[in-house]
Amino acid sequence: MARRRRTPVPAAPTPQYAWAFDAEGRAIPIADAVRGGLYHCPLCQGRMVARLGGEVRHHFAHEALTACPADEVARAAAVRWLLNRFQDCLTARQVITTSWTCPLCGQVHGANLLAGVVSAAEHVVQGDLLAGVGLLGADGALRAGVVAVTPDVELVAAYDRAGTPLIVINPAQMWRPGLDLPALLSGATIYGGLCVTRQAAVGKGIIADEAGLRRALLDGVTLPPHRFFGPLDAEQGLEHVLVLGRHRLWLPPAVWLRVVGGVRHVIAPGVSILSQEWPRLDDSTVALYYISARQSHAVAVRRFAPGEMVTARLADAAFRTPRMSVLQLARSLAEG
């Protein structure tokens, strides 16, 4: 009987890494590595060797086989590289000016990201604010946070509440040859305190913070007739301002989504309504509506007493007529 020949099982490929730390703890991409240099892993701190031969793509490899995930090694190296670059810029008193489309107001903003920053630190935690790299003021407070991973909603909201900018670097951009910090920041997404439109609103006494807007919307229906409506108009040089008694509220669509949220109803071509309900501790319900038609917007808020059914005529044919203005729609929703 013939013996069955065994098929050799190929050895698992040795992990290849694009980054390592040098002897001084600086993040080094493989393109800048030198043969025989002293390198170690950003995760396990084990010795790494720069493979710079002609047989395979250049890479770093552990001297002793480990299970460090390549993406986590790259992320740790990216944070250290960003820290080193920011420290270099601060030492040289360099100005880093970048621009971005603001997710709140939709306008293009520009700023010097190092204004008021005196130092940079790795893995900063201050209350609810977390940062891979923290840019710190003279008092040690976080002036801006930098991360190289997509942030969760809670982290973005925490930065927004603190009025502190969060700079989100696209990790994929860290692989580009000739890496440059200003160019990298130009492709970043920036959340939080650098919306100059919101800063202008606050400077003019207009309510623009999340907690203040929620409180004002609820206060507006606390007393009879327990409802209000109004257009969002230009006020003191700013768009999307709601006049509510003696208060002025800044409520562009993105801010309403963040503060109130809701379900979108398309009631006619080009006409939509965001509806939301806030149950209250006294068993009443506050219904909130944000009406948009092309470039016009209006708000309606109504309190329904305990036991009263929340009603809105969003499905009525008469309500869906495109001839109704946003203010007429708001009035209909507020007055029932």
Rank of each mutant, 00 (worst) to 15 (best):
25 G>D: 03
162 A>S: 09
15 P>D: 07
307 G>T: 04
318 A>G: 13
254 A>C: 10
138 A>G: 03
121 A>S: 12
286 V>E: 02
71 D>Y: 10
148 A>Y: 00
240 H>P: 04
298 A>M: 03
277 E>K: 11
256 W>C: 00
45 Q>F: 11
14 T>E: 12
11 A>D: 09
296 S>N: 14
304 F>S: 05
147 V>E: 13
292 S>Q: 15
85 R>T: 12
39 Y>A: 02
219 D>G: 09
166 L>P: 09
142 L>S: 00
212 G>L: 09
268 A>Y: 05
131 A>D: 10
308 E>M: 11
208 A>N: 04
140 G>E: 09
284 S>L: 04
140 G>W: 03
91 T>N: 11
19 W>H: 05
198 R>Q: 12
95 V>Y: 09
293 A>T: 05
169 I>L: 12
304 F>E: 05
299 V>G: 01
49 V>R: 15
28 I>R: 03
43 L>K: 00
31 A>F: 09
138 A>Q: 10
164 T>Q: 08
172 A>Q: 15
295 Q>V: 12
311 T>M: 08
6 R>V: 15
119 S>H: 01
100 W>Q: 01
263 V>Q: 10
48 M>N: 03
167 I>M: 06
211 A>Y: 11
318 A>W: 08
227 R>H: 14
85 R>Q: 15
47 R>V: 08
82 L>W: 02
32 D>K: 08
332 S>W: 08
257 L>S: 12
251 L>K: 04
107 Q>K: 12
290 Y>K: 02
15 P>M: 11
166 L>V: 11
